[in-house]
Structure formats: structure tokens, C-alpha cells
Amino acid sequence: MTFRPTSAGLSSLEGKYMSAQIFKPQANGIFKIVPLIIALVAAGVVLALVGIDESPYITEVGVAKNQPVPFSHKHHVGELKIDCRYCHATVEKVAYAGYPATETCMSCHSQVWTNSPLLEPVRDSYVTGEPIAWNKIYELPDFVYFNHSIHVNKGVGCSTCHGRVDEMHLLAKNQPLYMGWCLDCHRNPEQYVRPQDQVFNMEWQPTANQAAEGARLVAEYHIRKEQLTNCYICHR
């Protein structure tokens, strides 16, 4: 076939050739819109996955866990003002704050609420020696070394990480325990460090003067900032 220009010009060209093409003119639009939709859906999926990953569904932050005995920190800490160390007695001395032995529960509950059905598992445990299997709230990966005593002794208060335990009936996680969160304090501990006699005070709040006061305490407690971000400080 030879090309002969005619008076019909372009319109005859369309008639002869364009109609024979696979793609119709609106294909241009479709090929612009479809990749856009695919990209948006992909971005939406990624955002949704990030959202799920950051949500309490994964991080468990703020989600109260059931326990074999419905122990209320709000009642014991908030209302009765029992010191954290009464039960978590090793928190100042070793890495683990420790779950209280059943004997610790019974040191009061052999006298008060002695017939409460809620405390049946505690009395059973005391008689049989079978431990109460509390559900763990804060679980770190095994490649992280964490020591409670050094934090508590250097002015990091309980509530800085664990939140207002004195306002929680059943305990809920207060932090997702991301590494970035650890580093936030390890890079600039003066933001959070408080006087040692306030460590177990649930109501302590930083004052407007925290930057200067924190820096003073960091120096006073010999917190060596330059080593706090070494890998081996937490990974060993």
C-alpha cells in the first residue's frame, strides 16, 4: 500500500490506520490512571502494615493482660501507697525487679481478705508450693541485656518507663520498648533523670528546670553519657 495524500487529510488517515490499532485513544488515560492506582494501593498497604505494627495490636501498649489473680496495682500502689519494693524487692540490687513470692502476698493476705475467692489461687500456691504463673507484660528480645538496678540507682524512676502503674488496675504495657525509645534516653539522659529519693514516686513530674537539673544529676550520679550509646551497653 502506498501513501497518497488526499484532501481528506488526517481524517482519512485515521480511518485507514488508527482504527486498526489495538489501543483506543482512552488507553492513554487508563495507562496513566492504573499505575497511579497501583502505586496508591501499594503505599496504602505499606502504611496499613506500618500502622498495624505500631498499633497496640502488635505493641500491646495500653492493653491490660489477664492474670491468674486479678491483682490491682491501682489498689495496692495508688490507694494503699505500698512501696514498689515491698513486692519487687530485688529491683535495686539485681537485673530483675522480680515477681513477688507467694509468701509476700500472704504476709498481708494471711490477715486481710482471708476468705476472698479471688485470692484462692494465692492460698493454694502457698499451701502447695506451686508458683502462680503470672503473665509477663514487658518482654525484651533475648539479644538485649537490661538491668533494673543500674537504672533505678542512677535516678531513672519507675514511672519513666512503666507509666502510672498506680492508676492501672490490671497492668498494661506503657512502652513498645523500641530501640529508638531506649536510645532517646541513652543519648540524652538529662531529659529523664530524677533525684534518687524520687525514683519510686509515681507522681513525680519533671519541672520546667529539668534540662539544667537533669544535667546536674547526670554529673552527680557519674552517668557517663559517652558510653551509653555503645552497642555493648545493651547487646552483650
Partner: peptide
């Protein structure tokens, strides 16, 4: 198996 290493911690089952 780095996250859950075959070692025990206090109070573990």
C-alpha cells in the same frame, strides 16, 4: 532464634 535464644531467665517457665 536470636530473639528467643535457648537460655533461661529468672522467673521463666
Amino acid at each position: 532464634d536470636m530473639y528467643q535464644q535457648p537460655k533461661g531467665y529468672p522467673n521463666d517457665p
